[in-house]
């Protein structure tokens, strides 16, 4: 798979072999014990963010799955993480990620994208900032 990430405001692509490339492996299960250090979280689309407030504050990578490209929940989860929980770490989406949706995902605060091999990363790189002007300010 390919990872698209943003460096100095520019989208770049590279090959990776784990979803959490560059970060810790996600916790298999959230334990009752306080966790020390930074964590990687993998959130399901029906996650109740309020229950994870403390973990979100500690996270440096949050993985979000897009089960199908028409499932809009991750956009609102990402926006809420940025706006409501002031999450500033890496927000990475994987699953059914398509080039025509990349710009909106980015504008909702997602800054790292895992592409299936069936998706061309060269083309995807050209889909960022498709519009010079938009009516909304981004959440990122």
């Amino acid at each position: 798979m390919n990872l698209i990430f943003i460096e100095d405001g520019k989208p770049l692509a590279k090959r990776i072999d784990t979803l959490w490339h560059g970060f810790e492996e996600p916790l298999a299960q959230v334990s009752q014990q306080p966790i020390s250090g930074s964590v990687t979280l993998q959130l399901l689309p029906d996650v109740e963010l309020e229950d994870l407030r403390e973990l979100i504050a500690q996270a440096s990578l949050v993985l979000l799955e897009l089960p199908t490209f028409t499932d809009g929940r991750v956009y609102s989860i990402a926006a809420a993480l940025r706006q409501h929980y002031q999450y500033t770490g890496c927000l990475r989406v994987f699953g059914d990620v398509r080039q025509d949706q990349i710009d909106d995902l980015h504008r909702c605060g997602i800054d790292s994208f895992v592409l299936e091999d069936s998706q061309s990363s060269d083309e995807t790189l050209t889909r960022f900032n498709a519009f010079g002007f938009r009516y909304q300010r981004p959440f990122g």
């Binding site: 028409t70 809009g72 956009y75 949706q101 909702c108 519009f131 909304q136």
Partner: peptide, 14 residues
């Protein structure tokens, strides 16, 4: 109209 036009968060509602 402006706010809702290509709103990045609300283009894939249920």
């Amino acid at each position: 109209r402006q706010w809702s036009t290509l709103h990045p968060e609300f283009n894939w509602l249920p």
